[in-house]
Amino acid sequence: MERRWRLSGLTVHYEIWKDCLQDYKAGIVSARSDYFSKMINDSQRREEKQLRIIPLGKTGCGKSETGNTILNGKFFKAKCEPISVTKISASQTATVHGRSITYINTPGVFDTSLSDEELEKEIIISFIRCSPGPHAFLIILKVETYTAHEIEIVRKIRSLFGEGVLKYAVVLFTHGDNLDEDQTIEQFVSKNSELQQLVDKCGGPCHVIDNKYWNNKKKGYRSNKVQIKNLLSTISKMVEKNEGYRECYSNEMLQALGKYNEVRIQQLREELKGRSTEKIRAEAEEKTYRWAKSSQSHRGATEWLRAFLGSVYPCFGKHCSSVDQDYTPMLLKNE
């Protein structure tokens, strides 16, 4: 009788222990589920705070200085010279107003010191660096007379990137101190119908900064701090209008470039142990560019660039539908 009671007691204790173990395991599963859910949510929130920007404009319009002003630091070399200071694409990331901003600096659209092939290479590399694509383009113009040359600059941008580029673009004027006293940039734009038409077609209102005279002013219209905050607000609204931060100016070609570059970086990290991250990234970008170029060898120089940028077969984000089926498989297959 006493033995049965002891066995019964052991059974009771075993059942209690088993229930506790199940509760413990359930708690671990629940905790893991909560942990991974939190990781996903945190990742999504970080993604929503990230902003990738590519400036476009002629040589000397102030793209490098504008990058320094937006990121609030001395990241890009900027000099007052008749030739382009920026010969190769460069990117920098900084936190501005609680948001991670990546600014991918590019050579001038009409940089005569670069050959067409060199310019095309830097444009492609700039897109590799902001894979899967930029959230916004800044069409940078000076506060000055809007001449036939500026009109041709904008025409070339639209020709290379397609009409869809304006949906992702904001016009930003530099040299704001050239405005008349009490004149706003909107009033300046309204005096030229073609300039007004360009601004109206873009994804948001235009803005103005002065990289020389407005840096130390904290308040008022002629303050870079105020203007940059307004610019980023405009870009954020434009991004939301374009279906959110996970949607950007992209297509299957550009996404394939990004994936190929990621694979190359992983391979080179194994092959080139001890090399700096910057050198590995630069070599991966070079190999990715060569791979992209070889996959488009049947096209002319400008035509293949347009194919990648979407002006021949435009497709943005998840709305891709009309990609050239003849060369897409070639691009996506292994070397």
Rank of each mutant, 00 (worst) to 15 (best):
Q187C: 14
F137V: 03
E15W: 13
G133M: 10
S100Y: 09
K218C: 05
C80S: 10
L56C: 09
E335P: 05
G244C: 11
Q227N: 06
D324P: 03
Y213S: 03
S322C: 10
D34V: 15
H207F: 15
S89E: 01
V208G: 05
H319D: 11
S159C: 06
E194K: 13
A307E: 13
V170A: 08
V226T: 14
R32G: 10
Q187P: 05
M253E: 02
L119H: 08
S294K: 10
G300H: 00
I151K: 08
P82G: 07
G244A: 02
S64Q: 00
S89G: 10
R129C: 02
Y221K: 01
V312C: 04
A136H: 01
A136Y: 02
K79A: 05
L268I: 01
E48L: 03
R158H: 10
K218R: 10
N251M: 05
Y146W: 15
W5V: 15
R264A: 11
R155S: 13
V96G: 07
T174N: 06
D180F: 15
Y327N: 02
E186K: 08
S89T: 11
A136V: 13
G162Q: 13
E240F: 14
G73Y: 00
L166C: 15
I153C: 07
N215W: 12
H319Y: 12
T112I: 12
S43V: 14
R281E: 08
G57N: 00
C80T: 04
L195Y: 04
D326N: 13
Y221A: 01
I228A: 09
C61D: 01
T184Q: 02
A26C: 10
G98T: 01
G27L: 12
Y14A: 11
I280M: 08
K87P: 06
Y168P: 02
R275D: 07
I88L: 04
L21H: 01
H97D: 04
W304H: 06
V208Y: 07
Y249H: 04
R299Y: 14
I54C: 03
E286C: 04
E163G: 10
E117D: 10
K217Q: 06
I265K: 08
E303C: 12
Q50A: 04
Y35N: 02
K279Y: 12
R99A: 05
L138F: 12
S33M: 12
P55S: 05
H97K: 14
G164Q: 12
L160N: 03
K38Q: 10
H319M: 09
S131K: 14
K142H: 05
D34H: 04
K293H: 08
Y146H: 11
F127D: 00
M253V: 15
K273Y: 03
I209K: 02
E252V: 15
M39W: 08
I125V: 15
D180N: 15
C61L: 09
G60V: 07
R129V: 12
Y327L: 14
E243Q: 14
M330H: 06
I153G: 02
V312Y: 03
R275Q: 09
A169E: 04
P107N: 00
N105F: 12
I16P: 04
S236L: 13
R158K: 12
V199T: 05
K25N: 07
M253K: 03
N192W: 12
R155T: 15
T11D: 05
S115M: 04
